[in-house]
Design a protein around this nucleic acid. Structure first.
Lengths: 325, 325
DNA sequence: CATGTCACTGCAAACGTTTCCAGTTTCTGG
DNA sequence: CCAGAAACTGGAAACGTTTGCAGTGACATG
């Protein structure tokens, strides 16, 4: 049988209320505090978090809903969120949606049942603001914002990053630039729009495709893209696509950067191990996580703040994959 | 104000017990079930998991304690565990120890407070069986076993994998084989012992070093190792070390496989993107997670089973990094 | 017809906390 | 020395469920 606060109270010769206050931050005499502490040690008492949550109506847990933890971007993000959460005395409930709106809805429901005190998520493009509001808890969106809504968010400066990529490719002599973008997220859409805008500013033709954000889907989409009309540069909107592009080039014996330049988002660990290294926009993922958690805690603290939108700059890292042909 | 089972009961014109049974699996008439369901829909009722857990003394959550989720091995593992857990109607609490025994102890304590119904973990070498037993909950060890104890475990067949690596390197003409192994885990120790045993069977000298399992520590240890006496082949006990070795070779302009062959554990996504590809032992990580969850559920079901030890075979994937010089 | 079984239902007691309230003591300032 | 505030303490009522127990009919069995 598990030892409860009652046993501690008996052992310390005080009431349960007093034990509760001694363990929390209520006012107790030094003498009682000492007795309670040694009673806790003697009995091996461990607070029951469920009882605590039920009574106090606070959960000390936050939800984190991402597409797939195996995507290094989300891996890093989750680690950063977790560190920040545990530092604030909170636990994290992690869920993977696999970009499936049905799973996303299910997990939102679960988070509501868990009565998490807040939620950090990267929504799919198909999530309705209404569904999100139904969760009725503070929410911070990371990486992917929902346009026209009032949720706090932490995102990359996609306009600037996209322009930097395009400008860099143009400077390296590329003129037939194609792009592949994730179809399930607002971010994919945004990057496509920004890349297209940048291309138009240079008076260059616009060639872009969409794909589900998975290695296989990206690989297939790229195969088709290269089939139609061979570009001389490729912009990939996430790390999975970059990897798929590189793999495809190996298979087809396409020379990088000779025949094709490659550049994209996300600086995964291997981008400087391959030859040539890959030119990428490095996203400050750790900062995403930290900022998101910070924003969430602030929102939990005071529900009525104006919605806050944090925009972080990426960093263009130039490597061999985009050297002049 | 949140809607409780009482509101549903009132709306459906039945008692709370009946609602509880209708939602669970108690016997209820079809008529009542219908009324309860529509009452749930009408009121927007969501069960309060804390109350449920408090009353039923079951938590529907399992803990997962790993070294660092950013290590792709643990990323994959956690995803597999989560899928299996959610399929079984359980939630997962994830913790990163960073190989720090103090953090490990802290999270064990947390898991006990959460009253998780079970625990899956990759223990550090410094965790005492006694401390683990104090958690007083079913535990399954993954990837890293604790010798001489009675915990369920799911591990790789390290003896066979190590022998395969050594045999392969010897077959490719290597004679001065060195190894780097993780110092914090039982698995690192085991792989070292097995590699050394295999080398001795070939009558070859034994050259092995230990390092904290991080990229930087591995990189430094390898630099020192190559300094002392240049080997013609390197065995790395995990993916981080493989990456560090490759990076070091790039920096030092060491030709692979010409001057140095490289082989190791963990088939990370980039191992076939670099040139030459890296020869590795692929671990069935998804199976690790699935098996672990399955073992845990079995153990939760019946506490008194004989401890079970699942040993899975790795797969040697030969690539260019170990071609004859 | 009597009896037992079965399916269903409600009452009320937990589960382990926190927190409101009221009470006692001690301190503080005038 | 007194009044009031402040510090500390215990009693008891929640928080939202599940579940043991007992009760009600309906129905089958002998």
């Amino acid at each position: 049988m598990s030892v409860s606060i009652k046993d501690v109270a008996r052992a310390a010769g005080v009431s349960t209320s007093t034990v509760s206050r001694a363990l929390g931050k209520g006012p107790v005499s030094a003498e009682v505090l000492r007795r309670v502490e040694s009673a806790v040690a003697a009995t091996g008492y461990r607070p029951n978090l469920a009882a605590r949550q039920l009574r106090s109506q606070r959960s000390m847990a936050v939800g984190l809903i991402v597409a797939d933890i195996r995507n290094p971007f989300f891996t890093q993000l989750s680690r950063a969120v977790e560190d920040a959460a545990y530092a604030a005395g909170m636990r994290v409930l992690l869920c993977n949606t696999d970009e499936d709106p049905a799973r996303e809805a299910m997990y939102l429901e679960l988070m509501a049942e868990e009565r998490v005190s807040g939620l950090i998520m990267t929504p799919t493009r198909h999530l309705s603001p209404a569904a999100l509001a139904r969760v009725d808890r503070p929410v911070v969106l990371v990486d992917r914002a929902m346009p026209e809504t009032d949720f706090d968010s932490v995102v990359l400066d996609n306009a600037r990053a996209s322009a930097e990529l395009v400008d860099h490719l143009v400077a390296s002599g590329r003129r037939r630039i194609a792009g592949l973008f994730g179809s399930t997220s607002a971010t994919g859409m945004e990057r496509r729009a920004e890349v297209e805008a940048a291309l138009e500013r240079h008076g260059l033709p616009v060639r872009s495709a969409l794909s589900l954000p998975s290695f296989d889907a990206g690989h297939a989409a790229l195969a088709e893209l290269l089939e139609r009309e061979m570009p001389d540069a490729l912009i990939l909107s996430n790390g999975l696509f970059v990897r798929a592009a590189l793999k495809l080039c190996h298979e087809r014996r396409i020379a990088i950067p000779g025949q094709l330049a490659i550049a994209g988002f996300d600086d995964e660990v291997w981008t400087d191990l391959v030859d040539p290294g890959i030119t990428v926009i490095r996203q400050p993922v750790e900062d995403f996580g930290r900022e998101a958690m910070q924003a969430l805690l602030a929102r939990i603290g005071s529900a009525k703040m104006r919605p806050r939108r944090v925009v972080l700059a990426g960093e263009l890292i130039v490597r061999g994959s985009t050297a002049p042909a």
